[in-house]
């Protein structure tokens, strides 16, 4: 193992890790917004809105995220959408993650007992009040762990933007594998950083889950 080489290049990997973290945070934020919108659509009173929500989930979960990124980044200019690679990465991955989060959030909401909604309505709360003051506070507690799983997948999925040349961890590893012919060393550097990010996120999710849980 070439320790000397690893010491020489690791600052570049650290810098790339920050890009991966930034990508993950932005993607998670956009994914959560899409997920909340998607889940609202899936649970809407109107069948046309429910259909749109279901179509969103089916299409974005039914095709590879890599292809979705390529359509947005390479195909976008043909329909007047000009994005740089980083923006395309965040938007593409965010919409994709949103489809997965839609199902997670929907699952959390429908797992809340029907009686809760009926009771709140009987007490004179409006539909919106029922949803925001009774159902969501209960669902949110249940959602921390499953959304944490989505977050874990999302962090690993940020590697895909290497294919559209965003200089994050995987792209950096790929570049240095190509120029040094030391795949194991470069994998070790990038892999350890990924595992630190994922481990830290997992601990954060577990902490939040403990904090919001009522026993």
């Amino acid at each position: 193992m070439d320790i000397e080489l690893m010491l020489k290049v690791y600052p570049f990997f650290l810098k790339a890790a920050w890009i991966t973290i930034l990508l993950s945070v932005l993607t998670a934020g956009l994914g959560l917004i899409c997920g909340i919108l998607g889940a609202s659509a899936r649970l809407s009173r109107f069948s046309i809105v429910r259909f749109l929500g279901a179509a969103y989930v089916s299409v974005f979960r039914g095709t590879p995220a890599l292809i979705q990124l390529f359509i947005l980044y390479f195909g976008g200019p043909q329909i007047g959408i000009q994005l740089d690679a980083f923006e395309a990465g965040v938007i593409g991955l965010g919409i994709n993650a949103g489809a997965y989060m839609t199902e997670t959030i929907r699952g959390g909401i429908i797992s809340i007992d029907r009686g809760q909604r009926e009771a709140a309505r009987t007490l004179g709360l409006s539909r919106w009040q029922t949803t925001y003051k009774v159902i969501l506070p209960q669902a949110a507690r249940l959602l921390v762990r499953p959304l944490g799983v989505n977050l874990n997948m999302l962090i690993k999925a940020t590697a895909l933007v290497a294919a559209i040349s965003v200089i994050e961890l995987t792209y950096t590893a790929q570049r240095y594998i190509g120029s040094t012919y030391k795949p194991f060393e470069m994998f070790l550097l990038a892999g350890v950083l990924y595992m630190i990010i994922i481990y830290a996120t997992g601990r954060g999710v577990a902490w939040l889950d403990r904090k919001v849980r009522i026993n």
Binding site: A159, L160, I177, P183, F184, F187, A190, G191, Y194
Partner: peptide, 15 residues
């Protein structure tokens, strides 16, 4: 489980 599939593919192919 802790690293991206794409990175693993690079490792296996070039490794």
């Amino acid at each position: 489980m802790g690293t991206p599939l794409l990175l693993q593919l690079f490792l296996i192919y070039f490794g």
